[in-house]
Amino acid sequence: MTRYDLTHPLTDGMPVYPGDPAVSVSPAATMAADGYRVTGLALSTHSGTHVDAPSHLLADGRGLDAYDVGTFAMDAHLVGVEAGPREAITPDALPADDSADVVVLRTGFDAHWGTPRYRDHPYLAPETADALAERGQHVALDAASPDPSPPTGDADGEPEGYPAHRALFEAGLLVFENLRGLDALPSRFRLTASPLRVEGDGAPVRAVAVVED
């Protein structure tokens, strides 16, 4: 089997969602001064490649601690998204096979990581999120959000707020954001995306695709 790392590195000053705390990675002890190395790390629960739990937006939503560790090892179905910048991903993009634990959306916007264009990714139409919620499938994507990212600009028909997040969260489902390197993957694979063990609304993950040779 072959493993593919789908995770953006955590680096000092890396891109964050508008309004989120900055990421800081800096030396706290050095070999030259202290004889050993310790690195200070400051970040939010939604930094880099991460998972959103329902408590992110729902007052009574489940936190990550409510999910069994096995939840984060999933059968995945990869879908290539043909929607353009700030266009809605409609239900006809979803795979007919609904047996996968997670639908992974390849938008190609990981190529724009660290640039303003990264915020112009496609997003789930509300009815698409509703369909996934009914099917009980988690969502993962190589973009910042399944909802439009700010600033929303003048795009016609963009939903306000976070309807895709809410539809999925109300069904107890998880959202994995900011994946990378999906181009090398087949349509079916095993995805592991284990978060840091925090009782929170989200956490960084190490996302890895496992592909049978």
Rank of each mutant, 00 (worst) to 15 (best):
D34A: 15
D34G: 09
D34P: 07
D34F: 13
G35A: 09
G35K: 09
G35V: 11
Y36K: 10
R37T: 15
R37Q: 15
T39G: 09
T39P: 12
T39K: 09
G40N: 15
L41G: 04
A42F: 12
A42N: 10
L43Q: 13
L43S: 03
L43F: 12
S44V: 07
S44A: 14
S44P: 08
T45Y: 15
H46N: 07
S47H: 08
G48P: 04
T49I: 05
T49M: 04
T49V: 06
H50A: 14
H50M: 08
H50L: 06
V51W: 04
V51P: 04
D52A: 07
D52R: 13
A53S: 13
P54Q: 09
P54N: 09
P54E: 08
S55L: 14
S55V: 05
S55A: 15
S55I: 08
H56S: 15
H56E: 14
H56F: 13
L57G: 02
L57K: 04
L58Q: 06
A59K: 10
A59F: 05
D60F: 03
D60M: 03
G61D: 10
G61P: 08
R62Q: 14
R62K: 15
G63Y: 04
D65I: 09
D65Y: 10
A66L: 07
A66T: 12
D68T: 12
G70A: 10
G70Y: 00
T71Q: 14
T71A: 15
T71K: 12
T71D: 10
F72H: 08
F72C: 08
A73V: 14
A73M: 11
A73L: 13
A73E: 12
M74E: 00
M74L: 09
L78S: 04
L78N: 06
L78K: 10
V79L: 02
V79A: 05
G80R: 14
G80N: 12
V81N: 00
E82M: 10
A83W: 02
G84S: 04
G84P: 01
P85G: 02
R86P: 04
R86G: 02
R86L: 11
R86A: 10
E87I: 02
E87G: 11
A88T: 00
A88R: 00
T90L: 14
P91N: 02
P91A: 03
P91T: 02
D92H: 09
A93V: 12
A93H: 13
A93R: 10
L94A: 01
L94N: 03
L94V: 01
P95A: 05
P95F: 03
P95W: 06
A96F: 07
D97L: 00
D97M: 00
D97N: 06
D97G: 00
D98L: 03
D98G: 12
S99C: 02
A100Y: 00
D101G: 07
D101C: 03
V102D: 09
V103K: 01
V104P: 08
